[in-house]
């Protein structure tokens, strides 16, 4: 039997994380394992309060950890993706203070106190965000790996309201690479939601 990736475990880990252990995993020596020295010099773990999708997490984090790794590895919110880890693909796009940013180039510590919204926070209960529904309708993804970043970026785009034409949407979505090549369908989905919101106003 494979080790069961029980979804309930996520809650357990989150609970532990919220309890303050964070990334301070204990090292257990195995065969051929070097004993780890206690941390000396710079790099002491620091308390960081992250607010993600409306939920507060009191964490103790390595100052090095990016917001992206904190989401994926500590909070196990793996919807946000790592594609390049250098701000070159946009798969890690999340909303901080309502603005789209690359979580890979953002230190977790530097967003303490700012609300973070990820793909997991777009839907309301079972009701998909209009962009999520439009992405499905227009087949605005294939493998789905860049999709959370495309969605968060599109949420940011609509809020910024600098894009009207298809070409403007393309330009404003250009920070999100899609290697499967779903770009035209992403544009169609974004435009449908943008126009629906405009008509509703």
């Amino acid at each position: 039997m494979p080790p069961d990736p029980d979804p309930d475990r996520r809650d357990f880990i989150q609970g532990v994380a919220a309890g303050g252990l964070g990334v301070a995993l204990l090292s257990t020596a195995g065969p051929g394992v070097a004993a780890a020295d206690p941390p000396t010099g710079p790099g002491r773990a620091i308390p960081v309060q992250l607010t993600v999708n409306g939920q507060d997490h009191a964490l103790t984090l390595d100052p090095r950890i990016s917001l992206l790794d904190a989401l994926r590895e500590v909070l196990h919110l793996t919807g946000t993706k790592k594609g390049c880890d250098h701000g070159q693909c946009g798969a890690c796009t999340v909303l901080v203070d309502g603005r789209r940013v690359n979580a890979c180039l953002t230190l977790a510590a530097s967003v303490a106190g700012s609300p973070v919204r990820t793909v997991e926070g777009l839907a309301t209960g079972d009701d998909l965000h209009p962009l999520q529904a439009a992405f499905i309708k227009h087949d605005a993804f294939q493998c789905g790996y860049c999709t959370p970043g495309q969605l968060c970026s599109a949420v940011g785009l609509l809020k910024e309201a600098h894009a009207t034409t298809d070409d403007e949407v393309r330009e404003q979505m250009s920070g999100n690479l899609c290697r499967c090549g779903a770009y035209p369908n992403v544009v169609a989905a974004v435009q449908e939601v943008r126009l629906a919101a405009r008509d509703a106003r």
């Binding site: 789209r100 690359n102 970026s153 250009s174």
Partner: peptide, 9 residues
């Protein structure tokens, strides 16, 4: 320059 996400940061 860059992308909207990077320009926001």
């Amino acid at each position: 320059g860059a992308s909207p996400q990077l320009r926001n940061a």
